[in-house]
Amino acid sequence: MTGRKGIKMFYAIAILVALIDQISKYLIRSYLHIGETASLWGIELTHYENSGMARSLFQGYARLFGIAAVIFVAAVLYYRRTGQLKGLILNCSLGFLVGGAVGNAIDRLLFGQVTDFLVSRSGKGILNFADHAIEAGVLLLILHGVIQFTRKHFIKRKFS
């Protein structure tokens, strides 16, 4: 799946991630007070507002991180337009990364903080849907890199 199908996949994932992220955050802000915990289908939810970044580092810089996310999204869109970013796995990866960046940037720029609510099973953090999408995007980006490396260094040599 390359070309137009890859482009459609990129936009479908990015839009879906941003929408699910924003809807879930809206519901959390509407039904749970900050610090309140609830369980939904066995998933622990705790409403937390984070004005920093991962693991609450750099508190108070949410808007700066929001601007960085906007720059990241603009760069991805620019390079996609030039045709330099191709392939199904790369398109999916970038869709997750852009959707997650947009979801968190909206919170950071509008509210000065990000709504987190998904308690990790290890108990080491509270994330949101956008954060998990970014994790998925990074994993797919690593997979894309491994595949490209393998093709370049092993597959061509075998048939040369």
Rank of each mutant, 00 (worst) to 15 (best):
K86P: 00
N50D: 06
H47E: 03
I20D: 00
L140T: 04
K86F: 03
L27Y: 10
C92F: 10
L140M: 12
A62S: 15
Y26K: 08
F65K: 07
G3Y: 01
M53N: 10
D116G: 06
T150Y: 11
Y26A: 11
G145Q: 02
V17I: 14
F117M: 05
Q22Y: 02
A54Y: 09
R151C: 04
I126Q: 08
Y26I: 07
G137V: 02
S93K: 03
L127S: 08
G112H: 01
R81G: 09
V17P: 05
L143Y: 08
I142H: 04
S30P: 06
A68H: 01
Q84C: 10
S24Y: 01
R55Q: 10
R157T: 11
F96D: 10
L143M: 07
R81T: 10
K86A: 08
G52K: 01
L19C: 15
V114H: 03
S24C: 12
G66T: 04
R121F: 11
I106Y: 09
L32Q: 11
Y26F: 13
A105Q: 04
E49I: 08
F111K: 13
G137E: 04
R29H: 10
L141I: 00
Y11M: 07
S51Q: 04
G83R: 00
G103Q: 01
Q148E: 15
A74Y: 00
R55H: 14
D21K: 05
H144P: 00
S120F: 10
I106V: 15
S24H: 05
V73P: 00
F129R: 04
A18P: 01
T37Q: 11
Q113G: 04
I142P: 05
L88R: 12
A68F: 11
